[in-house]
Write a protein that binds this DNA or RNA. Structure first.
Lengths: 236, 236
DNA sequence: GCAGCTCTTTTTGTATACACATTGTATTTT
DNA sequence: AAAATACAATGTGTATACAAAAAGAGCTGC
């Protein structure tokens, strides 16, 4: 995927991130220091530093004297997510329109191309990673250091929730994701035009589409199950 | 202050946090691994792990091959802060009212007592730490894992901004801080009553008071200087 | 047969030694 | 004298060895 990283440490960091986002390492998984240290030819010291970095960003949970785990996705997580996401996403999109540097438009377009490519011929994991990257760039454009940490955490779990619920065989879903790609294009245009009002609206639309996709899966029969009664996504 | 910590590592962690919040270690300061490791009788390995934890929470910046620094407070920081704070604070307060566990009220009251004590006989640093703790508890009450990381970062810089601008000799300021304490009491009552609407309003009021205190210092003559033109607070 | 204990194994935490990068200084060169 | 370069000193990154804690296996007693 991404070219050769400048250090084995960086390689581990990138690999773990991707594994978390794509659910290759499911929430709650235990990480084996010794095994990973052999796999990446790193001693335990730098490896544990990577763990702490990732823990700080919300990818891992570190428990004293009891090793590292992939951060959990609980029932409550989903509720919290649905509450925080529209707020933060809206704010970030708006700020992206206002604050972005012109050079950054290129990065956003590159991310979008990668996303469209993943839609055509990629796996679900590739799609999720490309989509995450697209939104990550909007976060960089917004450039508000106080919003970024929450935004990043939302992106982590948004990717994981999407991976959980995405069913490529379902025709509705395929159309839905195609629509998401079109919205990305609209978002790029609105950001480039520095039209923050439109960006805020597109953020809402984009969120609603994503929300709909998740709800469609959670309540397939259309029966009206309140969010509080959702079945837990994983959890040991 | 707080009783004996269960490990030297924990002691270092707590001490550094406090030093950052009180500006005892000003933004941009370099941290000397060897010196701190002697001071806290810790080898460099666990010390650097603490650094990474603190970096993840926004207290420190880690630069490759170039040591750790206290995270910067720039010009742009203040702008970003003024934008994000009302939004996040409002959301957290509202959620605290809705989601808190009854046991947590005690913690909030304890924090508030400590705050009032600091107002009567404490230093500016004690006041800032107690105030930070009060709001930290509201964050715990809200209990939304997606909002918490941004909220925590706001609290760090709110403490530091307050420390920068607080002038105890100024009578206006003293009255202002007394008013803040009264607002805290109102917040406790509203949370306890689970009145989220009132909590949201109180969050706005509390924010406006704090904002006013900062602006009062930044533009003492009342001349209308736009925020974009503020002098940088620190920065080497 | 199962609860509780002890001893062993495995895993995590810390210290230390060494390798490597960066920075500042002195010397050389023009 | 100024610039460039080699060198020394300091400080950061990594590996490894050891200590401590948790988990697991096997034993004993009820």
């Amino acid at each position: 995927m991404s070219a050769d990283p400048k250090s084995r440490k960086e390689a581990l960091y990138v690999a773990l991130k991707a594994s978390v986002l794509t659910l290759e390492l499911p929430p709650g998984s235990d990480l084996d220091e010794t095994a990973l240290s052999e796999e990446f030819s790193l001693s335990r010291t730098p490896l544990r530093e990577v763990f702490r970095n990732l823990a700080g960003e919300g990818y891992l949970d570190l428990r004293e004297n009891r090793g590292a785990r992939i951060s959990e996705m609980s029932h409550k997580t989903l509720r919290d997510f649905f509450l925080a996401a529209p707020m933060i996403y809206g704010a970030v999109m708006r700020l992206a329109a206002i604050n972005h540097k012109t050079e950054q438009i290129g990065e956003l377009m590159a991310a979008q191309e990668r996303f469209r490519a993943a839609l055509r011929k990629g796996s679900g994991a590739e799609r999720a990673l490309a989509n995450t990257r697209f939104h990550e760039v909007t976060g960089e454009m917004a450039g508000n250091i106080y919003l970024t940490p929450s935004f990043q955490r939302l992106l982590i779990d948004h990717a994981r929730i999407s991976m959980t619920f995405y069913q490529p065989q379902n025709g509705d879903m395929a159309r839905n994701v195609g629509e998401a790609a079109d919205q990305h294009d609209a978002i790029i245009a609105a950001i480039q035009a520095r039209d923050d009002e439109r960006c805020a609206q597109l953020a809402i639309d984009h969120w609603n589409l994503s929300r709909g996709r998740i709800e469609l899966f959670v309540m397939p029969a259309g029966l009206d199950m309140p969010l509080g009664e959702l079945p837990a996504t994983q959890t040991a």
